[in-house]
Amino acid sequence: MAIPVFGLGTFRLKGPQAVAAVSTALKLGYRHIDTAQIYGNEADIGKAIQTSRIAREDLFVTTKVWPENFHGDDLITSLEESLEKLGLDNVDLALIHWPVPAQQAPLAEYVGALLEAREQCLTRYIGVSNFTIAHLEQAITAIGAENIATNQIEVHPFLQNRAVRDFAQRHDIHTTAYMPLAHGNVMQDATLQRIAGAHRVTPAQVALAWLMQQGVAVIPSSTRREHLAANLQAQKLTLSQQEMQDIAELERGERLVNPDFAPQWD
């Protein structure tokens, strides 16, 4: 898999808090850092990367292009600005952050511009985020499924997004899960607590392992060292087939990220 199965999400982290969280994560062994233009923390993350002195080839950095930069040459220009803030010659993965209505910007135009950014070596891989099946179909028609490294969407035990994930899998498009801990709600679930107790781990580790065991990459976010360290250890946990099924039955359509500009979800 081109995309590391485990990374650090940085949504809502800014300034010294972002620098500290990313620096701590890198010291603990994180090597995949996920950011976005709209987060306003690319420069903070760049500072943490620079001070870490970790070799560039050992890092995997993802950023996302915001819709206001979809027109004309704006996408490539904005990505160049992101690289300047990050202090990098290129990112490993650049994503379209949100799809927009066709009248605002044609999908083929902005995914095509992202492909051009890859051809200009501004990014190693390209992909999308928050794409529905219909959007994925359009993107596949425009640039080919082989050029879509991942679709980053909200996935956790209470919102499993199976239709979109199944469609993506049929087209060999990987899935990355944001909000994999459901804003911490996984900690209060009885099923996850029971499974965690059996393995002597935390419910958060169980939720993360459940996703990774399905081949889904996860990018949980935290500012606390103990949580960052514990989340990282989820990679060592293996769940039984019955435990995987028990968690699959927790689906309840609990979508946490649904801004007014979101698409019509599947």
Rank of each mutant, 00 (worst) to 15 (best):
M1Q: 12
P4D: 06
P4F: 05
G9E: 00
T10V: 09
T10C: 11
K14L: 09
G15P: 05
Q17P: 08
Q17C: 13
A18S: 06
L28W: 04
L28G: 05
H32V: 10
I33W: 00
D34E: 11
T35I: 05
A36F: 01
A36R: 00
Q37W: 08
N41Q: 14
E42N: 11
A43W: 08
D44M: 08
D44L: 08
G46F: 08
A48T: 00
R53Q: 13
I54Y: 08
E57D: 15
D58M: 09
V61Y: 05
T62H: 02
P67L: 01
N69I: 03
F70P: 00
F70C: 00
H71N: 07
D74E: 06
L75H: 07
I76P: 02
T77K: 14
E80F: 05
L83E: 00
L86H: 09
L86D: 01
G87L: 13
L88A: 12
V91M: 01
A102Q: 13
A102Y: 08
A102S: 12
Q103P: 04
L107I: 12
A108Y: 03
A108W: 04
A108S: 13
L114V: 02
L114K: 00
E116W: 05
A117V: 06
R118E: 15
E119Y: 11
Q120P: 04
L122N: 00
L122C: 15
L122F: 14
R124V: 13
R124W: 11
R124D: 15
R124M: 12
Y125Q: 14
Y125H: 15
S129A: 14
N130I: 09
I133N: 13
A134F: 03
H135T: 03
A145Y: 07
N147S: 14
N147K: 13
A149S: 15
H156L: 12
H156V: 12
P157N: 14
F158Q: 04
L159W: 11
N161D: 12
R162H: 14
R162L: 12
V164M: 15
R165P: 14
D166C: 13
F167I: 06
A168E: 07
H174Q: 15
A177Y: 01
Y178L: 06
Y178P: 02
P180F: 03
L181D: 02
A182Y: 01
H183K: 14
G184V: 07
M187K: 10
Q188W: 04
Q188K: 11
D189W: 01
Q193H: 07
I195L: 07
I195P: 00
A198F: 03
A198C: 11
R200I: 11
V201D: 02
P203K: 04
A204Y: 05
Q205W: 02
V206M: 06
A207K: 03
A209V: 02
W210H: 09
Q213C: 08
Q214I: 04
V216D: 03
V218K: 01
V218S: 01
R224W: 02
R225H: 12
R225A: 14
E226V: 06
E226S: 11
L228M: 02
A229K: 12
A229F: 06
A229R: 06
A230Y: 04
Q233I: 04
Q235R: 13
K236Y: 02
S240Y: 06
Q242S: 13
D246V: 07
D246R: 10
L250E: 00
E251G: 05
R252G: 03
G253W: 09
G253F: 04
R255L: 15
P263L: 13
Q264V: 10
Q264C: 08
W265P: 01
D266M: 07
